[in-house]
Design a protein around this nucleic acid. Structure first.
Ligand code: FES
Ligand code: FES
Lengths: 138, 138
DNA sequence: AATTAATGATACTAAAATAGTATTATTAAA
DNA sequence: TTTAATAATACTATTTTAGTATCATTAATT
């Protein structure tokens, strides 16, 4: 069950690395190459991911020499769900209908109800997790 | 987020149809062709799915003229999770590690803990849902 | 001004997963 | 013997995922 896709995973690794350096060494700007060296991720791919995060307003990017990516939002305020939404849309396990055909009993469908409830819970729990909480474990 | 795959979906439709006929008309044996006619599913594909359910011990199959599939387990005792497991393995959203690389902080990883808890809850909830509860909405 | 080191945008491609089809064998009733 | 069903398994097409390549833009350094 692919709940967290690779894009999200790579992006989280990158952000956690950046947050770590940022908090411990007060480092501000990170090039893709640096993150790639440290985390062993595919470079061109990660670049695309960080671009996406910049478009989403989590990071800022600066072109040219001495350029790179830095946090726009502080890492303690970046939720896991923010990152997931950037790459995989909102958490939604309620899509129980395939090919547009309705379930046999849509209105009183117990599965639909159950999935909706579970989904809310998942969202609530994942929103508690931030880049810093991944780094620090709390 | 593909939580329920198409195989499961088709199989559920088939089983719900069969349960309905079984409960209302005391019908026992169903050919693939009948289900396909009624539910509009791809025939050869559904046959493969019902074969899987038979191997799993949910249905029995009978070859030859007047053959077909019938319930081995009563539909009220067939859980959604039984069907899901047949086609997509156990419900497991905890696979947060990709490409075998560990997360930055595996032992005290808050995401891991959160996902494990959520997963238990999902399993508990989905186990309450059976073929008959899908049919009846409770 | 030229060079260099960075990201931006976008198109392309390879690999894997998903969904579905085809073929041949087996079985049992009529 | 024919017919109507499933069994097994191989094959194929489509879609998604993952990743690469190319060229453009930008800003600091020399
Ligand atoms: S299975 Fe989705 S509405 Fe019932
Ligand atoms: S993200 Fe899986 S153990 Fe931390």
């Amino acid at each position: 069950m692919k709940f967290i896709v690779r894009d999200t995973d790579y992006a989280v690794r990158a952000l956690v690395y950046m947050a770590k350096q940022s908090l411990s060494k007060n480092k501000k700007v990170f090039t893709v190459d640096e993150v790639v060296r440290e985390e062993g991720l595919p470079g061109r791919f990660l670049r695309k991911l960080l671009q996406t995060l910049a478009k989403r307003g989590l990071l800022v990017s600066n072109k040219g020499k001495k350029g790179g990516f830095s946090f726009l939002k502080p890492p303690a305020s970046i939720k896991l769900t923010d990152i997931m939404e950037a790459f995989q849309g909102r958490v939604d396990i309620t899509n129980c209908l395939l090919k547009g055909r309705p379930c046999p009993n849509k209105k009183k469908c117990i599965l639909r109800k159950t999935l909706k409830n579970i989904n809310k819970l998942i969202q609530r729990e994942l929103e508690k997790i931030t880049v810093v909480s991944l780094l620090e474990g709390r």
